[in-house]
Amino acid sequence: MLSVKYFASLREQLGCNSERVEFVAGETLAQLAGRLASLHTGSPSDLQHPTTRCAVNQQVVELTVVPFDGDEIAFFPPVTGG
């Protein structure tokens, strides 16, 4: 299983803070984003928007990365702190 978290505008668009989804061996984060978007077809979101960022176990990574079973994945818009 993967633990998936959403933040800020993405969290609001999907109406979901976090969820657990099946782990698919060899699936990239970009492919995972597509699968998650299809799970939320009723809630159009920026999940596959080019500016959306992704972190695996609290480290920002490229969408070409393939996560491991049990990883914590987070999708979020560009950060705006400070």
Partner: peptide
């Protein structure tokens, strides 16, 4: 670096 890499979001 905080402004571009720390995971905060302003509304």
């Amino acid at each position: 670096h905080l402004k571009t890499s720390a995971p905060f979001w302003k509304k």
